[in-house]
């Protein structure tokens, strides 16, 4: 699993990358009350805003970590945004992306490096 400076986690799964936010991020954001997901099939470039999340405090964006195509989104989060606070590293993934430049994954941090960054 890799981590971005924007507190996303990236997990490779059958040639696709599953994207979510870290427990640290979910904790800092506070209770999440709204999620807007991208449409399946959308072509995104690295750093495109592709998810909006709203917590009780404020709105934030999640950026596409890689170039590629959105292949699946976690519709459950739209119905139950609180799931992100309950299980950010597991069931509450946001979307899957089929990367067009898989080597972009190399730019991201290992878990140990991410833990260093937030400590």
């Amino acid at each position: 699993m890799k981590f971005t400076e924007e507190h996303e986690w990236l997990r490779e799964e059958d040639g696709e990358i599953v994207v979510g936010i870290t427990e640290h991020a979910a904790e800092q954001l506070g209770d999440i009350v709204f999620v807007e997901l991208p449409e399946v099939g959308t072509e995104v470039s690295k750093d495109d805003e592709c998810v909006v999340i709203e917590s009780v405090k404020a709105a934030s964006d999640i950026l596409a970590p890689l170039d590629g195509e959105i292949t699946e989104v976690n519709e459950m989060l739209v119905e139950d945004p609180g799931k992100i606070n309950e299980d950010p590293m597991g069931d509450a993934w946001f979307f899957k992306i089929k990367p067009s430049e898989p080597s972009q994954m190399d730019d991201y941090m290992t878990e140990a490096e991410y833990k260093d960054m937030i400590s």
Partner: peptide, 12 residues
């Protein structure tokens, strides 16, 4: 350039 992910007033 971007409103970076998870960098909002509540997360500053």
């Amino acid at each position: 350039a971007h409103h970076r992910a998870l960098r909002c007033p509540a997360f500053s």
